[in-house]
Structure formats: C-alpha cells, structure tokens
Lab assay of single mutants.
Amino acid sequence: DTINITLPDGKTLTLTVTPEFTVKELAEEIARRLGLSPEDIKDTHNGKTLDPSLTLAEYGITPGSTITLEIK
C-alpha cells in the first residue's frame, strides 16, 4: 500500500507502508530518503501534527492518503 508525502517544495514522494507503521517509522523512512534527520521532520494530516507513537491506522491514514511534510 502506498501513501503520498507532500514535500515543502510541492513535490510528492510516494512511500510503501502498512497501516501498522508508526508515525515515527514513517518519519525515519522519509528522513532516510531525503537525507535528513528524523527529528527534523514534522508530519501533518488534515491540519493536525501527528504523534510519533501512534500508527497510521490510528489516524485513519489509508492507501492513497496524503501527508504533508514540514521541515523543523
């Protein structure tokens, strides 16, 4: 299953994830792909900052969802 990550420059990154991924694991994968530190990444969905300890499923993030990435 894939989700879309909207980057600060407007580009989109597509990642393969499972509903059990935590937001922290997602940030780590994004950081790895972009050459950043996971601590520099802030993920938001529907205007809410995502708690790193919760899973994508707990936020109702499903395949095809879009998450907005902010760099701290």
Rank of each mutant, 00 (worst) to 15 (best):
D1V: 15
D1P: 10
D1R: 05
D1K: 06
D1L: 15
D1A: 15
D1H: 11
T2C: 07
T2W: 14
T2N: 07
T2G: 05
T2R: 08
T2P: 05
I3H: 02
I3L: 08
I3T: 01
I3A: 01
N4F: 14
N4C: 07
N4I: 09
I5H: 06
I5D: 05
I5R: 06
I5M: 03
T6Y: 12
T6K: 14
T6L: 15
T6A: 14
T6I: 15
L7M: 11
L7Q: 03
L7W: 05
L7F: 13
L7H: 02
L7A: 04
L7V: 04
P8W: 07
P8Q: 10
P8Y: 05
P8L: 10
P8R: 08
P8S: 11
P8G: 10
P8V: 08
D9F: 07
D9M: 05
D9L: 05
D9A: 05
G10Y: 03
G10F: 03
G10E: 03
K11W: 11
K11N: 12
K11H: 13
K11E: 11
K11F: 13
K11L: 13
T12M: 11
T12H: 09
T12K: 10
L13G: 02
L13M: 10
L13E: 04
L13W: 08
T14K: 10
T14D: 03
T14S: 09
T14C: 10
L15A: 02
L15G: 00
L15F: 04
L15I: 14
T16F: 11
T16Y: 12
T16M: 11
T16P: 12
V17F: 12
V17K: 00
V17N: 00
V17D: 00
V17P: 01
V17M: 06
V17L: 06
V17T: 04
V17Y: 14
T18D: 05
P19E: 05
P19Y: 03
P19W: 03
P19D: 06
E20P: 02
E20R: 07
E20D: 12
E20H: 10
E20M: 10
E20Y: 07
E20W: 07
E20V: 07
E20T: 13
F21T: 15
F21L: 12
F21S: 12
F21V: 08
F21P: 00
F21M: 15
F21W: 14
T22N: 01
T22Q: 01
T22F: 01
T22M: 02
T22E: 00
V23W: 15
V23D: 00
V23K: 00
K24H: 07
K24V: 04
K24A: 10
K24R: 14
K24W: 11
K24T: 04
K24I: 05
K24F: 07
E25F: 04
E25W: 05
E25M: 14
E25G: 05
E25Q: 13
E25I: 03
E25V: 03
E25Y: 03
E25K: 08
L26S: 00
L26W: 01
L26D: 00
A27D: 04
A27K: 14
A27W: 15
E28K: 07
E28Q: 11
E28P: 00
E29Q: 07
E29F: 12
E29N: 05
E29Y: 08
E29K: 06
E29V: 11
E29W: 12
I30D: 00
I30L: 11
I30T: 01
I30A: 02
I30F: 03
A31H: 06
A31N: 04
A31L: 06
A31Q: 06
A31C: 11
A31P: 00
R32L: 10
R32H: 09
R32A: 08
R32M: 08
R33V: 11
R33W: 15
R33P: 00
R33N: 06
L34A: 05
L34F: 06
L34K: 00
L34G: 01
G35C: 12
G35Q: 07
G35I: 02
G35F: 04
L36T: 12
L36H: 08
L36E: 04
S37M: 10
S37P: 12
S37C: 14
P38C: 15
P38I: 15
E39W: 04
E39A: 14
E39M: 15
E39R: 14
E39P: 14
E39C: 15
D40M: 13
D40P: 13
D40E: 12
D40S: 12
D40L: 13
D40V: 12
D40I: 11
D40Q: 12
D40G: 09
I41H: 03
I41Q: 02
I41C: 13
K42W: 15
K42I: 15
K42Q: 13
K42H: 11
D43N: 15
D43W: 15
D43G: 15
D43K: 15
T44C: 15
T44M: 12
T44K: 14
H45V: 14
H45M: 13
H45P: 05
H45G: 09
N46Y: 09
N46P: 09
N46A: 08
N46M: 10
G47T: 04
G47W: 09
G47N: 07
G47I: 10
G47C: 13
G47M: 11
K48Q: 12
K48A: 09
K48T: 11
T49N: 08
T49M: 10
T49Y: 12
T49W: 14
T49I: 12
T49A: 11
T49R: 11
T49Q: 11
T49K: 13
L50M: 10
L50S: 03
L50E: 02
L50I: 11
L50G: 04
L50Q: 03
D51A: 04
D51M: 04
D51Y: 04
D51N: 10
D51G: 03
P52I: 08
P52V: 11
P52Q: 14
P52S: 15
P52E: 10
P52A: 13
S53F: 08
S53H: 10
S53V: 05
L54V: 10
L54Y: 07
L54F: 08
L54S: 11
L54E: 03
L54A: 12
L54W: 10
T55D: 01
T55M: 03
T55G: 02
L56A: 00
L56Y: 01
A57Q: 10
A57Y: 13
A57M: 11
A57V: 12
A57I: 12
A57K: 11
E58L: 02
E58W: 04
E58Y: 09
E58C: 06
E58N: 04
Y59K: 03
Y59T: 11
Y59N: 15
G60P: 02
I61K: 01
I61Y: 08
I61R: 00
I61F: 06
I61D: 01
I61E: 01
I61N: 01
I61Q: 01
T62G: 12
T62I: 12
T62C: 13
T62R: 03
T62F: 14
T62D: 06
P63T: 09
P63F: 04
P63R: 02
G64V: 01
S65Y: 05
S65F: 07
S65T: 13
S65K: 04
S65V: 10
T66S: 05
T66G: 02
T66R: 03
T66P: 01
I67F: 02
I67C: 09
I67H: 03
I67G: 00
T68E: 12
T68M: 14
T68R: 14
T68A: 13
T68I: 14
L69Q: 00
E70S: 05
E70G: 08
E70T: 07
E70Q: 08
E70Y: 04
E70I: 11
E70N: 07
I71C: 14
I71R: 05
I71N: 05
I71S: 05
I71V: 10
I71F: 12
K72P: 09
K72Y: 13
K72N: 14
K72L: 14
K72G: 13
K72Q: 11
K72V: 14
